[in-house]
Computed example of a mutant assay.
Amino acid sequence: MQNKNITVVKSMDVLNLFLHHSVLTLNEMVELLGVPKTSVHRMAGSFETMGFLQKNDEGRYKLGLQFLQFGQLVAERLDIRQIALPIMKELRDRAKEAVNLIIKDSNDAIYIEKVDTLHPVRLYTKVGRRAPLYAGACSRIILAFLDEDEQERYVCETKMVPIGSGTITDKDQMREVLADARENGYTISDSELENETISIAAPIFDHTGSLAAGLSIAGPDSRFGEERHPELIELLKSAAKEISFQLGYQEGNE
Rank of each mutant, 00 (worst) to 15 (best):
I243D: 00
F70T: 14
A218S: 09
Q72H: 13
G248M: 11
A84P: 03
F145Q: 01
Q66W: 12
A95E: 06
E192T: 00
Q2D: 15
I141D: 01
P230D: 10
F67A: 06
I204K: 00
V74N: 07
R42V: 10
K96F: 13
V14I: 11
I87L: 07
S189P: 05
N16R: 10
Y124C: 10
A98F: 05
V99L: 10
F67H: 10
N5A: 10
A75L: 14
A135S: 06
G252S: 03
L15G: 00
E231S: 13
N195C: 11
E31P: 04
E227F: 11
E242I: 13
I87Q: 01
C156M: 15
M43D: 05
T158Q: 06
S11D: 07
M1P: 08
R81M: 09
A181D: 06
R60E: 09
L78D: 12
Y134I: 06
Y61A: 03
Q82I: 14
G59A: 04
H41C: 10
R130Q: 06
E28T: 03
L78S: 14
E251G: 06
T208H: 08
K159E: 08
L118D: 09
N5E: 11
G136V: 01
L235R: 01
I80M: 05
R92F: 13
S39K: 04
